[in-house]
């Protein structure tokens, strides 16, 4: 089974450990993981800012780079949603590329959905114990319908007590460039989310999307919260010894 990893621009730039956690989980399923070098970003910044031409150019690049694999796995609901839901919309009027985008869409899975569907047991039962809250990204929840998968995976970790956030369906306020275009409103939304995380009594917050996590972690740190924040992949791969998102380096 050849699996191509679409690592996503945020993981590539900010948190490569999520990429390595993803590779570890996939390899435990027996996959041969390939990282196509021609990947940069899924094109959402262009798409969501109305530059459909650039979005198409980047989509073509991704479609070419990820051609021919059994599966394409993305450690982000947002970027997976772009490949699965929006690439075909972008090529509505280009039959040939549309067909290729549909092939890619059919092979592409968000990481937790892929792991849950695989039927294998990729999870590393690390000596972690504590209360873990899950934040569902809006794109994972609504564009891809992912809800049970991350919870089922967390359930495999003996030391994890899962807790749900109040108003879990509400957006954290990241929204790509929204958070810098409308910083006041975004701040209000992320404050509500951080309050919900703190109120849940969780020791650790996880999500499948680094965008949400950077947003929420950044707010939690600003509020001097001790909640540690990881990508779901890091927790599942037993990599929570490393500093959480926005935590200082270990000395």
């Amino acid at each position: 089974m050849r699996v191509a990893l679409f690592v996503t621009c945020l993981v590539d730039l900010f948190r490569p450990s999520v990429g390595f956690a993803t590779v570890r989980l996939l390899e435990r399923l027996g996959a041969e993981v390939v990282v196509p070098p021609e990947q940069t970003c899924c094109g959402q910044p262009a798409y969501n800012n109305g530059d459909f031409e650039t979005a198409r150019a980047i989509a073509r690049q991704v479609i070419a780079a990820f051609d021919g694999f059994d599966h394409v796995v993305v450690p982000s609901g947002s970027c997976a949603g772009m490949l699965v839901r929006h690439y075909p919309e972008l090529f509505r009027d280009e039959p040939e590329t549309l067909a290729r985008s549909q092939t890619l869409a059919a092979r592409t899975r968000e990481l937790s959905a892929f792991l849950a569907e695989s039927g294998g047991d990729p999870v590393v039962d690390a000596p972690f114990s504590g209360k873990v809250a899950i934040h569902d990204s809006c794109s994972a929840r609504r564009e891809l319908g992912i809800h049970a998968a991350p919870r089922a995976l967390l359930g495999k970790l003996a030391g994890v007590e899962s807790v749900e956030l109040k108003e879990a369906e509400t957006c954290c306020g990241f929204g790509g460039t929204f958070c810098v275009k409308y910083p006041d409103i975004s701040a209000r939304m992320v404050t509500d989310k951080a309050d919900a995380v703190i109120a849940s009594g969780a020791d650790v917050l996880v999500s499948g999307d680094l965008g949400c996590l950077m947003n929420i972690a950044g707010r939690l740190k600003r509020m001097d919260s001790t909640v540690r924040v990881y990508h779901l992949a890091e927790l599942l791969a037993g990599m929570t010894d490393a500093p959480g998102i926005a935590d200082p380096d270990k000395t």
């Binding site: 948190r15 910083p183 950077m214 950044g218 926005a246």
Partner: peptide, 20 residues
């Protein structure tokens, strides 16, 4: 816009692609 209300997490170091 970002840092008015929240901290910005710093990159861990080199990019994933380079490390890979």
């Amino acid at each position: 816009g970002w840092t008015a209300a929240r901290d910005l997490p710093a990159p861990q170091g080199d990019t994933f692609m380079a490390q890979w």
